[in-house]
């Protein structure tokens, strides 16, 4: 399969030592810590994790909206971190992002038509007429009406606003789109609409998606592969169906177990694993395996040495000493 994007050992640390309280030891937030993965053309990689695990930061670092502390990102064999600002600007045409908050990412004083046309006015030499035609085409594509072009963001519902955001990102025919929790703020029935729309667009336009979310069950329906993050590191990465059928990491196992089953009988029968405690602070992440403080099957080895992130089975990566040996029950 053809690779579109290659992320190698990327880290993003935030320095807490600035500001008023400069004394004391070095305080560093390890938002993303040594993450590597590949993204195949025309596929979707789901990136899942609890709040504060660094999934959004990773998305921003890939697009160089934030500079990585170390590591490199290759986009079709171009090293993005070496690009000069002007070159990067040209690359941005191919890489787009959709954010969670559909309202604050739309300018409330611009009409929908102006919002969708803006990338074309900035990056292309299309005529006014061409731009208008393309705007209407995009509105149709995401399931809105051309007559909506003259309306303003506040006149739309959350689901419709997310469609507008998607239309804008598609304006310049991107090959790679990051969706940063695009459905988290939407109602269940509307979430399904947006997920189905993204799937249709992928089939039609051949776009590669990085789909960031905290809801494992919804991610399954859009991703070809899923990566599970915890405290800045990838714990497990595998094909969607494989990850659900045979999760190797205790964290993935407990996340899957925490998904409620929409059937009262089954829900009463099964014993869900409820993880104790909360995600530790990324300022001083635990030594050894970062998950050992909450892991039901951890032992001394886990608290002293960090497990390698390695390919356990072909295409199934995991970072755990006891992958497939110990299971959370």
């Amino acid at each position: 399969m053809e690779k579109l994007l290659r992320v190698e050992n990327i880290s993003k640390y935030f320095d807490l030592k600035s500001g008023l309280f400069k004394f004391g030891g070095a305080q560093v937030v390890r938002a993303v810590d040594n993450v590597s993965f590949e993204l195949y053309k025309n596929q979707t990689l789901g990136l899942v994790g609890e709040s504060g695990c660094g999934k959004s930061t990773l998305g921003r670092v890939i697009l160089r909206l934030q500079e990585p502390t170390s590591g490199t990102v290759y986009f079709e064999d171009t090293n993005l971190s070496l690009l000069k600002p002007e070159e990067l600007r040209r690359f941005r045409i191919k890489m787009q992002i959709v954010f969670q908050d559909s309202y604050s990412s739309l300018n409330p004083r611009h009409s929908i038509g102006e919002i969708i046309a803006e990338p074309m006015t900035i990056h292309t030499r299309m005529t006014q007429h061409e731009i208008r035609a393309r705007t209407y085409e995009l509105l149709n594509l995401v399931g809105l009406k051309p007559s909506h072009a003259s309306r303003f963001p506040h006149e739309f519902s959350g689901g419709q606003r997310q469609r507008i955001n998607i239309a804008r990102t598609l304006a310049l025919y991107p090959s790679f789109v990051i969706c940063d929790e695009p459905i988290s703020a939407l109602d269940v029935s509307i979430q399904a609409q947006v997920v189905n729309l993204l799937r249709d667009l992928q089939k039609e336009l051949g776009i590669t998606f990085l789909f960031i979310a905290h809801d494992l069950s919804m991610v399954k329906y859009i991703s070809d592969r899923i990566a599970v993050m915890y405290l800045g590191k990838i714990m497990e990465l595998a094909g969607s169906d494989l990850l659900f059928a045979n999760p190797l990491h205790p964290y993935t196992q407990s996340l899957i177990s925490a998904i409620p089953i929409p059937s009262p009988q089954e829900e009463r029968m099964r014993k869900a694993v409820v993880l104790e405690g909360e995600v530790p602070s990324p300022v001083n992440p635990p030594a050894g395996c970062v998950f050992h403080t909450r892991c039901p099957v951890a032992d001394d080895l886990c608290s002293s040495s960090e497990p390698d992130y390695s390919e356990h089975n072909p295409g199934h990566f995991v970072a755990c000493h006891y992958a497939a040996v110990r299971r959370v029950e």
Partner: peptide
Amino acid sequence: IPSIAGSSADRLVS
């Protein structure tokens, strides 16, 4: 509701 038992190729009902 996305079912965890379903296949990822299934389409969600909206």
